[in-house]
Design a protein around this nucleic acid. Sequence first.
DNA 1: GCATCATGGTAAAACGATTTTCGGCACATG
DNA 2: CATGTGCCGAAAATCGTTTTACCATGATGC
Lengths: 330, 330
Amino acid sequence: MSPGVVSRVFNADANLRIRDETRQRVLAAAEELSYTPNHAARALRRARVGVLGLAVHDVSNPIYSEIVAGVQRAATEAGYTLMLADADALASDDASFRNLIGSRLIDGLLLQRAGNNADAMVAKIASGRLCTILLNDRTRGPLSSVALDDETAARLATEHLIGLGHSRIGHLAVDGPRSRSQARVRGWRSALRAAGMAEEPELLAGGGHTIEAGFEGMRQLLRSEIRPTAVFAGNALSAVGAATALRQAGLSIPGDISLIGFHDLPFAAHLTPPLTTVRLPLRAMGSRAVELLLEQLDGSAARHEIVRSPAPELIERGSCAPPGRVGRAP
Amino acid sequence: MSPGVVSRVFNADANLRIRDETRQRVLAAAEELSYTPNHAARALRRARVGVLGLAVHDVSNPIYSEIVAGVQRAATEAGYTLMLADADALASDDASFRNLIGSRLIDGLLLQRAGNNADAMVAKIASGRLCTILLNDRTRGPLSSVALDDETAARLATEHLIGLGHSRIGHLAVDGPRSRSQARVRGWRSALRAAGMAEEPELLAGGGHTIEAGFEGMRQLLRSEIRPTAVFAGNALSAVGAATALRQAGLSIPGDISLIGFHDLPFAAHLTPPLTTVRLPLRAMGSRAVELLLEQLDGSAARHEIVRSPAPELIERGSCAPPGRVGRAP
DNA sequence: GCATCATGGTAAAACGATTTTCGGCACATG
DNA sequence: CATGTGCCGAAAATCGTTTTACCATGATGC
């Protein structure tokens, strides 16, 4: 039996004419020897490895975990395996960068850009020939991107606070206090303006995307002249840190200050008080990114897309209440 | 210039005698063309791909995230790339299983066994020829394993509660209420016995390794005849669920019931009250597992190891207090 | 009876590196 | 002059698949 026939049986080649008896013989022998095609040889021959790369900034961040889950599912469905890389290591270690990007270890890359040298990194990748999708990013550039409708979600959160009667609504911005043009800040601002409220610069602080940064950001808000009665945190983890800062200041949530988080993660319901959040389709974004990547591997052009479905949704729990009134007991 | 020379320059072959001028010429040309060796071809020729697999039960579980971080670091240091797989998908989808295990897509596998069919899966893997290390597992079998000193940690947690004066100390067991032989249950029991306390079967409930399971487990403990004054949760996430159950029952922590968690995760300090825990070297276990795997790839025999360093450590926060007294304010 | 065609395969050439073998050149030695 | 002997580098074999080209053989068409 020649290897060529075996190969075509395995790949269900439609152009192969073969006696059924022979096919059975091949299959039986494969079973007997528990034969599995060698990945490297196959990848070498067809110029395609069947592996997608996913580089995220911090694997242990639960927000990324959600994205990873979506990516994982879509990739598996499409018959691809997923390779996880550390975006920071990629940015700093040039050897591992070249190994991942240039060696055709993967067919395409999903990149969650983050950190300071993100731009430099994007440039480096764009100059290469590896098909890449930027995750959770709405940059207009040579690289495709998939993002969420952060602005709508931020507006939703802010409007909820406005609806409760708040008028001094702070915001912990993920990209620092000076990032006045980012989507979440825009959503927050547009909701304030629509309600006829002035935007106080002191009500905008940096909250980062970590517990610690949220803690610091909230402390800064509390030190400001006009103390907010409600705070919209631009990130789920920073909301956790913010809550701790409030508790340390002896303030109750939502009695003294209402708090709303961004991204609805599993533990949000288990904070004290349970955290009201806006939920965004993180998993869907992950899946969609894979679809886009696969399309692009087939030659379609770069594209910038925003995943709006399922739509951002307000998840009411116990961390928001009208101002100046004690909310329900914890 | 022949490809052979190029290859040997790139891999710093000691047996190659070459004029320095020629070497420079090779290096310059490589730089010029931004040449990177093709991974598949290289993997095919040397029967080694430079990729390690890591299969965990649930990527979004923060405990696994810690392990992943440790594995990631050690793998990168050793010049290996990491491939993340979903252990559940591996167990259920036979095609992806064979693809990962048999095709030499990876050189070795780190497997966090979990789920019901874990045993069957281990058997399937053991029958194959892929070098595998079981993570967080102390099974004696043909496969190597790396585990933590859960028993000591559990004893430490229980002794802390005993030291505070508690005598009715419940335990939420990760593997269900009937798993009387697991390490954490053993640690809990041995601490109780050492203090001359009887082990009440009603004080043992299943807490799983999810928030929900912990919630249910605590509710069960609260329904029992002898209500505990302190609970040792066998898992960090189940402690979060347990805290919610207590809150819903109108009980205060630690005023009415003290709570101590297993595994010290970033958010533990940000619960209300901040959760007292025992910290285990999760990252170190991940790193050690990689080391063991690499040794074994070089031919060393299977081994069962327990990572005891850094030693389990009690992290006191605000969720434990003497019984029948109100603890410090949240 | 000769050309054509479908059938059921075989044989061989890629794929892009690594590794082993071999050969040519220059110089020294007997 | 013949013969080693270092040095450098070229050639060729190899890894396990996929893919293309091709070849018997017998059946069919005319």
